[in-house]
Design a protein around this nucleic acid. Structure first.
Lengths: 200, 200
DNA sequence: GCACTAAACGGATGAACCATCCGCTTCATT
DNA sequence: AATGAAGCGGATGGTTCATCCGTTTAGTGC
Protein backbone atom coordinates (compact mmCIF):
# COMPACT_ATOMS: atom_id res chain seq x y z
CA UNK A 1 0.00 0.00 0.00
CA UNK A 2 1.20 3.46 -0.81
CA UNK A 3 0.90 6.38 1.51
CA UNK A 4 -0.54 9.58 0.17
CA UNK A 5 1.15 12.74 1.21
CA UNK A 6 0.94 16.44 0.70
CA UNK A 7 3.90 18.65 -0.10
CA UNK A 8 4.46 21.67 -2.25
CA UNK A 9 0.71 22.01 -2.37
CA UNK A 10 0.21 18.75 -4.23
CA UNK A 11 -1.05 15.31 -3.37
CA UNK A 12 1.20 12.61 -4.76
CA UNK A 13 1.83 8.91 -4.51
CA UNK A 14 4.77 9.13 -2.14
CA UNK A 15 6.75 11.81 -0.35
CA UNK A 16 10.01 13.06 -1.79
CA UNK A 17 13.25 12.01 -0.29
CA UNK A 18 14.97 14.79 1.60
CA UNK A 19 17.71 15.39 -0.99
CA UNK A 20 15.15 15.36 -3.79
CA UNK A 21 12.98 17.92 -2.01
CA UNK A 22 16.01 20.13 -1.52
CA UNK A 23 16.98 19.91 -5.18
CA UNK A 24 13.44 20.63 -6.23
CA UNK A 25 13.41 23.79 -4.15
CA UNK A 26 16.75 24.91 -5.56
CA UNK A 27 15.52 24.35 -9.08
CA UNK A 28 12.39 26.37 -8.42
CA UNK A 29 14.53 29.13 -6.94
CA UNK A 30 16.69 29.37 -10.06
CA UNK A 31 13.56 29.13 -12.18
CA UNK A 32 12.06 32.04 -10.31
CA UNK A 33 15.16 34.10 -11.01
CA UNK A 34 15.15 33.29 -14.71
CA UNK A 35 11.46 34.01 -15.08
CA UNK A 36 11.89 37.32 -13.27
CA UNK A 37 14.71 38.26 -15.63
CA UNK A 38 12.63 37.32 -18.64
CA UNK A 39 15.28 34.79 -19.63
CA UNK A 40 13.78 31.94 -21.65
CA UNK A 41 13.98 28.77 -19.56
CA UNK A 42 16.34 26.04 -20.79
CA UNK A 43 16.29 22.98 -18.59
CA UNK A 44 19.90 22.04 -19.29
CA UNK A 45 20.92 25.55 -18.34
CA UNK A 46 18.88 25.40 -15.15
CA UNK A 47 20.70 22.19 -14.22
CA UNK A 48 24.05 23.86 -14.74
CA UNK A 49 23.01 26.86 -12.64
CA UNK A 50 21.76 24.67 -9.80
CA UNK A 51 24.84 22.47 -9.99
CA UNK A 52 22.84 19.32 -10.54
CA UNK A 53 22.56 16.76 -13.33
CA UNK A 54 20.15 17.41 -16.18
CA UNK A 55 18.18 14.31 -15.35
CA UNK A 56 17.38 15.69 -11.92
CA UNK A 57 15.80 18.77 -13.45
CA UNK A 58 13.91 16.77 -16.07
CA UNK A 59 12.66 14.36 -13.43
CA UNK A 60 11.04 17.16 -11.45
CA UNK A 61 9.96 19.29 -14.40
CA UNK A 62 9.65 17.53 -17.74
CA UNK A 63 9.15 20.83 -19.58
CA UNK A 64 10.01 24.50 -19.01
CA UNK A 65 6.28 25.11 -18.74
CA UNK A 66 6.10 22.74 -15.76
CA UNK A 67 8.81 24.69 -13.97
CA UNK A 68 7.04 27.96 -14.68
CA UNK A 69 3.92 26.49 -13.14
CA UNK A 70 5.85 25.59 -10.00
CA UNK A 71 7.25 29.11 -9.86
CA UNK A 72 3.74 30.51 -10.21
CA UNK A 73 2.30 28.58 -7.27
CA UNK A 74 3.12 31.23 -4.65
CA UNK A 75 1.54 33.97 -6.73
CA UNK A 76 -1.56 31.88 -7.35
CA UNK A 77 -1.98 31.17 -3.68
CA UNK A 78 -1.70 34.86 -2.91
CA UNK A 79 -4.37 35.59 -5.52
CA UNK A 80 -6.64 32.97 -4.01
CA UNK A 81 -6.31 34.62 -0.63
CA UNK A 82 -7.07 37.99 -2.18
CA UNK A 83 -10.15 36.52 -3.84
CA UNK A 84 -11.28 35.04 -0.54
CA UNK A 85 -10.99 38.43 1.09
CA UNK A 86 -12.86 40.00 -1.82
CA UNK A 87 -15.86 37.72 -1.43
CA UNK A 88 -16.12 39.00 2.15
CA UNK A 89 -16.48 42.55 0.85
CA UNK A 90 -19.98 44.00 1.18
CA UNK A 91 -20.22 45.99 -2.03
CA UNK A 92 -20.26 43.70 -5.09
CA UNK A 93 -18.73 46.24 -7.43
CA UNK A 94 -15.93 47.23 -5.06
CA UNK A 95 -15.10 43.58 -4.47
CA UNK A 96 -15.07 42.85 -8.19
CA UNK A 97 -13.01 45.90 -9.10
CA UNK A 98 -10.49 45.52 -6.29
CA UNK A 99 -9.84 41.95 -7.22
CA UNK A 100 -9.28 42.89 -10.85
CA UNK A 101 -6.81 45.54 -9.76
CA UNK A 102 -5.04 42.87 -7.77
CA UNK A 103 -4.88 40.30 -10.54
CA UNK A 104 -3.62 42.76 -13.14
CA UNK A 105 -1.00 44.02 -10.75
CA UNK A 106 0.06 40.49 -9.88
CA UNK A 107 0.56 39.58 -13.53
CA UNK A 108 2.75 42.61 -14.06
CA UNK A 109 4.89 42.07 -11.01
CA UNK A 110 5.20 38.29 -11.29
CA UNK A 111 6.13 37.15 -14.77
CA UNK A 112 5.32 33.51 -14.01
CA UNK A 113 1.63 34.26 -13.59
CA UNK A 114 0.74 35.39 -17.10
CA UNK A 115 1.60 32.17 -18.91
CA UNK A 116 -0.31 30.19 -16.30
CA UNK A 117 -3.38 32.40 -16.28
CA UNK A 118 -3.47 32.66 -20.08
CA UNK A 119 -2.99 28.98 -20.90
CA UNK A 120 -5.91 26.61 -21.29
CA UNK A 121 -6.37 24.88 -17.92
CA UNK A 122 -6.07 21.50 -19.60
CA UNK A 123 -2.39 22.13 -20.33
CA UNK A 124 -1.52 22.79 -16.71
CA UNK A 125 -1.30 19.58 -14.71
CA UNK A 126 0.60 21.24 -11.87
CA UNK A 127 -1.67 24.16 -11.14
CA UNK A 128 -5.09 23.15 -12.45
CA UNK A 129 -6.22 22.63 -8.90
CA UNK A 130 -5.30 26.17 -7.82
CA UNK A 131 -6.77 27.65 -10.97
CA UNK A 132 -10.05 25.89 -10.29
CA UNK A 133 -10.17 27.36 -6.81
CA UNK A 134 -9.40 30.81 -8.16
CA UNK A 135 -11.94 30.44 -10.91
CA UNK A 136 -14.66 29.41 -8.52
CA UNK A 137 -14.01 32.40 -6.26
CA UNK A 138 -13.90 34.74 -9.21
CA UNK A 139 -17.17 33.35 -10.50
CA UNK A 140 -18.75 34.42 -7.23
CA UNK A 141 -17.34 37.91 -7.56
CA UNK A 142 -18.57 38.17 -11.12
CA UNK A 143 -22.02 36.85 -10.42
CA UNK A 144 -22.50 39.15 -7.47
CA UNK A 145 -21.55 42.17 -9.57
CA UNK A 146 -23.86 40.98 -12.30
CA UNK A 147 -26.75 40.31 -9.95
CA UNK A 148 -26.32 43.80 -8.52
CA UNK A 149 -26.83 45.17 -12.03
CA UNK A 150 -23.39 46.74 -12.15
CA UNK A 151 -22.29 45.11 -15.40
CA UNK A 152 -23.23 46.22 -18.89
CA UNK A 153 -25.48 43.75 -20.71
CA UNK A 154 -23.68 41.29 -22.96
CA UNK A 155 -20.72 40.82 -20.67
CA UNK A 156 -20.25 37.19 -19.68
CA UNK A 157 -18.03 35.39 -17.23
CA UNK A 158 -16.16 33.81 -20.14
CA UNK A 159 -15.10 37.26 -21.32
CA UNK A 160 -13.31 38.12 -18.14
CA UNK A 161 -10.17 36.00 -18.29
CA UNK A 162 -9.33 37.05 -21.84
CA UNK A 163 -9.97 40.69 -21.00
CA UNK A 164 -7.82 40.59 -17.88
CA UNK A 165 -4.94 38.89 -19.69
CA UNK A 166 -5.35 41.32 -22.56
CA UNK A 167 -4.94 44.23 -20.17
CA UNK A 168 -1.73 42.74 -18.81
CA UNK A 169 -0.55 42.17 -22.37
CA UNK A 170 -1.25 45.80 -23.25
CA UNK A 171 0.55 47.07 -20.20
CA UNK A 172 3.57 44.91 -20.98
CA UNK A 173 3.61 46.28 -24.52
CA UNK A 174 3.62 49.83 -23.36
CA UNK A 175 7.28 50.72 -22.89
CA UNK A 176 7.53 51.45 -19.20
CA UNK A 177 10.80 52.02 -17.43
CA UNK A 178 10.37 50.98 -13.83
CA UNK A 179 7.96 48.39 -12.42
CA UNK A 180 6.02 51.06 -10.61
CA UNK A 181 5.27 52.91 -13.81
CA UNK A 182 4.22 49.67 -15.44
CA UNK A 183 1.79 48.98 -12.63
CA UNK A 184 0.33 52.44 -13.21
CA UNK A 185 -0.10 51.73 -16.90
CA UNK A 186 -1.83 48.45 -16.10
CA UNK A 187 -4.11 50.23 -13.71
CA UNK A 188 -4.89 52.81 -16.37
CA UNK A 189 -5.84 50.18 -18.96
CA UNK A 190 -7.90 48.34 -16.40
CA UNK A 191 -9.77 51.57 -15.68
CA UNK A 192 -10.57 51.92 -19.36
CA UNK A 193 -11.94 48.40 -19.52
CA UNK A 194 -13.82 48.67 -16.24
CA UNK A 195 -15.34 51.85 -17.55
CA UNK A 196 -16.46 49.95 -20.61
CA UNK A 197 -17.82 47.05 -18.57
CA UNK A 198 -19.90 49.07 -16.17
CA UNK A 199 -23.66 49.39 -16.52
CA UNK A 200 -24.92 52.96 -16.99
CA UNK B 1 27.73 53.17 -59.88
CA UNK B 2 24.82 51.17 -58.52
CA UNK B 3 21.28 51.68 -59.63
CA UNK B 4 18.63 52.04 -57.00
CA UNK B 5 15.46 50.14 -57.62
CA UNK B 6 12.14 49.46 -56.01
CA UNK B 7 10.64 46.04 -55.65
CA UNK B 8 8.59 44.29 -53.05
CA UNK B 9 7.93 47.70 -51.57
CA UNK B 10 11.55 48.27 -50.69
CA UNK B 11 14.34 50.42 -51.98
CA UNK B 12 17.55 48.47 -52.29
CA UNK B 13 21.01 48.70 -53.69
CA UNK B 14 20.35 46.59 -56.77
CA UNK B 15 17.45 44.70 -58.34
CA UNK B 16 17.08 40.99 -57.79
CA UNK B 17 17.94 38.61 -60.53
CA UNK B 18 14.87 36.98 -62.04
CA UNK B 19 15.43 33.56 -60.47
CA UNK B 20 16.10 35.15 -57.11
CA UNK B 21 12.90 37.18 -57.30
CA UNK B 22 10.93 34.05 -58.16
CA UNK B 23 12.39 32.13 -55.24
CA UNK B 24 11.70 35.00 -52.93
CA UNK B 25 8.05 34.98 -53.93
CA UNK B 26 7.77 31.24 -53.47
CA UNK B 27 9.32 31.49 -50.04
CA UNK B 28 6.86 34.18 -49.03
CA UNK B 29 4.01 32.06 -50.34
CA UNK B 30 5.00 29.09 -48.20
CA UNK B 31 5.59 31.45 -45.30
CA UNK B 32 2.08 32.80 -45.69
CA UNK B 33 0.67 29.30 -45.56
CA UNK B 34 2.64 28.39 -42.44
CA UNK B 35 1.70 31.59 -40.66
CA UNK B 36 -1.94 31.05 -41.54
CA UNK B 37 -1.81 27.53 -40.10
CA UNK B 38 -0.17 28.82 -36.95
CA UNK B 39 2.82 26.55 -37.62
CA UNK B 40 5.99 27.96 -36.08
CA UNK B 41 8.32 29.01 -38.89
CA UNK B 42 11.52 26.99 -39.30
CA UNK B 43 13.70 28.28 -42.09
CA UNK B 44 15.20 24.89 -42.94
CA UNK B 45 11.71 23.49 -43.19
CA UNK B 46 10.59 26.36 -45.42
CA UNK B 47 13.52 25.58 -47.74
CA UNK B 48 12.46 21.98 -47.96
CA UNK B 49 8.85 22.93 -48.70
CA UNK B 50 9.87 25.38 -51.41
CA UNK B 51 12.32 22.90 -52.88
CA UNK B 52 15.26 25.22 -52.56
CA UNK B 53 18.53 25.17 -50.62
CA UNK B 54 18.60 26.46 -47.06
CA UNK B 55 21.05 29.17 -47.99
CA UNK B 56 18.57 30.65 -50.44
CA UNK B 57 16.00 31.07 -47.72
CA UNK B 58 18.51 32.49 -45.23
CA UNK B 59 19.81 34.91 -47.86
CA UNK B 60 16.38 36.43 -48.33
CA UNK B 61 15.20 36.15 -44.73
CA UNK B 62 17.88 35.83 -42.10
CA UNK B 63 15.32 35.12 -39.37
CA UNK B 64 11.77 33.74 -39.19
CA UNK B 65 10.73 37.19 -38.01
CA UNK B 66 11.98 38.70 -41.28
CA UNK B 67 9.84 36.27 -43.27
CA UNK B 68 6.81 37.07 -41.16
CA UNK B 69 7.37 40.73 -41.90
CA UNK B 70 7.40 40.02 -45.62
CA UNK B 71 4.20 38.04 -45.26
CA UNK B 72 2.61 40.92 -43.38
CA UNK B 73 3.32 43.51 -46.07
CA UNK B 74 0.06 42.94 -47.97
CA UNK B 75 -2.01 43.26 -44.82
CA UNK B 76 -0.18 46.41 -43.79
CA UNK B 77 -0.75 48.01 -47.16
CA UNK B 78 -4.45 47.19 -46.92
CA UNK B 79 -4.56 48.79 -43.48
CA UNK B 80 -2.84 51.90 -44.80
CA UNK B 81 -5.46 52.20 -47.51
CA UNK B 82 -8.20 51.77 -44.93
CA UNK B 83 -6.61 54.49 -42.82
CA UNK B 84 -6.41 56.79 -45.82
CA UNK B 85 -10.10 56.29 -46.45
CA UNK B 86 -10.83 56.88 -42.77
CA UNK B 87 -9.14 60.27 -42.73
CA UNK B 88 -11.54 61.27 -45.54
CA UNK B 89 -14.50 60.52 -43.26
CA UNK B 90 -16.34 63.58 -41.97
CA UNK B 91 -17.18 62.47 -38.47
CA UNK B 92 -14.05 62.12 -36.34
CA UNK B 93 -15.47 59.50 -34.03
CA UNK B 94 -16.87 57.34 -36.81
CA UNK B 95 -13.56 57.49 -38.65
CA UNK B 96 -11.67 56.58 -35.49
CA UNK B 97 -13.99 53.77 -34.50
CA UNK B 98 -14.29 52.25 -37.97
CA UNK B 99 -10.57 52.11 -38.34
CA UNK B 100 -10.19 50.38 -35.00
CA UNK B 101 -12.77 47.83 -36.05
CA UNK B 102 -10.74 47.28 -39.19
CA UNK B 103 -7.40 46.88 -37.46
CA UNK B 104 -8.71 44.46 -34.85
CA UNK B 105 -10.40 42.41 -37.54
CA UNK B 106 -7.26 42.40 -39.66
CA UNK B 107 -5.15 41.09 -36.80
CA UNK B 108 -7.59 38.26 -36.20
CA UNK B 109 -7.87 37.23 -39.83
CA UNK B 110 -4.19 37.65 -40.74
CA UNK B 111 -1.87 36.01 -38.23
CA UNK B 112 1.19 37.75 -39.66
CA UNK B 113 -0.03 41.17 -38.58
CA UNK B 114 -0.04 40.75 -34.81
CA UNK B 115 3.65 40.11 -34.36
CA UNK B 116 4.47 43.04 -36.63
CA UNK B 117 2.05 45.47 -35.00
CA UNK B 118 3.05 44.42 -31.48
CA UNK B 119 6.81 44.49 -31.91
CA UNK B 120 8.85 47.61 -31.23
CA UNK B 121 9.36 49.35 -34.59
CA UNK B 122 13.10 49.28 -34.10
CA UNK B 123 13.12 45.49 -34.46
CA UNK B 124 11.42 45.57 -37.85
CA UNK B 125 13.82 46.57 -40.61
CA UNK B 126 11.54 45.28 -43.36
CA UNK B 127 8.30 47.03 -42.47
CA UNK B 128 9.32 50.06 -40.41
CA UNK B 129 8.54 52.23 -43.38
CA UNK B 130 4.96 50.96 -43.70
CA UNK B 131 4.42 51.12 -39.96
CA UNK B 132 5.51 54.75 -39.97
CA UNK B 133 2.98 55.55 -42.66
CA UNK B 134 0.27 53.74 -40.74
CA UNK B 135 1.25 55.41 -37.52
CA UNK B 136 1.12 58.85 -39.06
CA UNK B 137 -2.35 58.27 -40.50
CA UNK B 138 -3.57 56.86 -37.22
CA UNK B 139 -2.21 59.85 -35.35
CA UNK B 140 -4.46 62.04 -37.48
CA UNK B 141 -7.47 59.89 -36.68
CA UNK B 142 -6.68 59.97 -33.00
CA UNK B 143 -6.06 63.69 -32.84
CA UNK B 144 -9.22 64.49 -34.70
CA UNK B 145 -11.26 62.37 -32.30
CA UNK B 146 -9.51 63.99 -29.39
CA UNK B 147 -9.97 67.54 -30.74
CA UNK B 148 -13.67 66.81 -31.20
CA UNK B 149 -13.83 66.00 -27.49
CA UNK B 150 -14.88 62.46 -28.08
CA UNK B 151 -12.18 60.83 -25.96
CA UNK B 152 -12.17 60.50 -22.19
CA UNK B 153 -9.49 62.59 -20.49
CA UNK B 154 -6.24 60.79 -19.74
CA UNK B 155 -6.24 58.74 -22.94
CA UNK B 156 -3.12 59.34 -24.99
CA UNK B 157 -2.01 58.32 -28.43
CA UNK B 158 0.67 56.07 -26.88
CA UNK B 159 -2.08 54.04 -25.22
CA UNK B 160 -3.74 53.08 -28.45
CA UNK B 161 -1.37 50.53 -29.96
CA UNK B 162 -1.09 48.53 -26.75
CA UNK B 163 -4.84 48.61 -26.26
CA UNK B 164 -5.56 47.50 -29.80
CA UNK B 165 -3.06 44.65 -29.64
CA UNK B 166 -4.43 43.71 -26.22
CA UNK B 167 -7.90 43.40 -27.69
CA UNK B 168 -6.62 41.08 -30.40
CA UNK B 169 -4.78 39.11 -27.74
CA UNK B 170 -7.95 38.76 -25.70
CA UNK B 171 -9.97 37.66 -28.70
CA UNK B 172 -7.38 35.06 -29.60
CA UNK B 173 -7.46 33.75 -26.04
CA UNK B 174 -11.19 33.31 -26.09
CA UNK B 175 -11.77 29.84 -27.48
CA UNK B 176 -13.65 30.50 -30.69
CA UNK B 177 -14.42 27.80 -33.18
CA UNK B 178 -14.69 29.43 -36.60
CA UNK B 179 -13.00 32.63 -37.77
CA UNK B 180 -16.32 34.42 -38.01
CA UNK B 181 -17.06 33.82 -34.37
CA UNK B 182 -13.60 35.01 -33.46
CA UNK B 183 -14.15 38.22 -35.37
CA UNK B 184 -17.35 38.71 -33.40
CA UNK B 185 -15.50 38.23 -30.13
CA UNK B 186 -12.88 40.76 -31.21
CA UNK B 187 -15.59 43.21 -32.09
CA UNK B 188 -17.21 42.64 -28.72
CA UNK B 189 -14.00 43.35 -26.80
CA UNK B 190 -13.34 46.38 -28.95
CA UNK B 191 -16.80 47.67 -28.06
CA UNK B 192 -15.99 47.31 -24.38
CA UNK B 193 -12.78 49.28 -24.77
CA UNK B 194 -14.33 51.91 -27.03
CA UNK B 195 -17.03 52.29 -24.46
CA UNK B 196 -14.36 52.89 -21.87
CA UNK B 197 -12.46 55.33 -24.05
CA UNK B 198 -15.38 57.54 -24.95
CA UNK B 199 -15.97 60.89 -23.31
CA UNK B 200 -19.29 61.16 -21.45
C1' DG C 1 25.35 32.78 -80.30
C1' DC C 2 29.52 33.11 -77.19
C1' DA C 3 32.42 34.53 -73.44
C1' DC C 4 32.68 36.48 -69.14
C1' DT C 5 31.43 38.26 -64.52
C1' DA C 6 28.73 38.75 -60.73
C1' DA C 7 24.80 37.08 -58.56
C1' DA C 8 22.58 33.33 -56.72
C1' DC C 9 22.32 28.50 -55.54
C1' DG C 10 22.70 24.05 -52.87
C1' DG C 11 23.71 21.17 -49.36
C1' DA C 12 27.47 19.45 -46.45
C1' DT C 13 28.85 20.59 -42.09
C1' DG C 14 29.89 22.01 -37.30
C1' DA C 15 27.73 24.24 -33.45
C1' DA C 16 23.98 24.49 -30.21
C1' DC C 17 20.25 22.67 -28.02
C1' DC C 18 17.36 18.87 -26.32
C1' DA C 19 15.93 14.96 -23.46
C1' DT C 20 16.69 9.98 -22.49
C1' DC C 21 18.87 6.12 -20.56
C1' DC C 22 21.47 3.47 -17.41
C1' DG C 23 25.25 2.48 -14.14
C1' DC C 24 26.28 4.51 -9.69
C1' DT C 25 25.18 6.84 -5.13
C1' DT C 26 22.45 8.14 -1.28
C1' DC C 27 18.58 7.88 1.72
C1' DA C 28 15.45 5.52 4.68
C1' DT C 29 14.10 1.49 7.01
C1' DT C 30 14.88 -2.64 9.75
C1' DA D 1 25.08 -2.63 8.93
C1' DA D 2 22.42 -4.52 5.41
C1' DT D 3 19.25 -3.88 1.87
C1' DG D 4 16.09 -2.10 -1.42
C1' DA D 5 14.16 1.78 -3.32
C1' DA D 6 14.64 6.43 -4.68
C1' DG D 7 17.38 9.61 -6.67
C1' DC D 8 21.49 11.21 -9.13
C1' DG D 9 24.79 12.45 -12.97
C1' DG D 10 26.38 13.04 -17.35
C1' DA D 11 27.47 10.63 -21.59
C1' DT D 12 25.12 10.27 -25.60
C1' DG D 13 22.23 10.16 -29.91
C1' DG D 14 18.82 12.93 -32.00
C1' DT D 15 17.21 17.27 -33.71
C1' DT D 16 17.40 21.97 -35.11
C1' DC D 17 20.12 25.91 -36.59
C1' DA D 18 22.74 28.84 -39.76
C1' DT D 19 27.24 29.35 -42.21
C1' DC D 20 30.51 28.61 -45.70
C1' DC D 21 32.24 27.63 -50.11
C1' DG D 22 32.48 25.10 -54.53
C1' DT D 23 29.24 25.03 -58.37
C1' DT D 24 25.60 26.84 -61.38
C1' DT D 25 22.99 30.34 -63.76
C1' DA D 26 21.41 34.91 -65.20
C1' DG D 27 22.61 39.01 -67.38
C1' DT D 28 25.84 41.81 -70.32
C1' DG D 29 29.00 43.11 -74.08
C1' DC D 30 30.60 41.62 -78.24
Amino acid sequence: MELLSVYAGEVTASPLRKDAARNRQRIIEIGRKLVADGTPIQLNEVARAVGVGVATVYRHFPTPQALIEAVAVDGLEALIQAAERAVEQDDPWTAFRDFLVRIVDAQLSDAALSPVLSAPTTALPGTAHLLDQLSSLFTQLFERAEAAGRLAPGITLADMTPLICGIAFSARMHPAVDPQEQAAVGRHYLDVVLNGLRAR
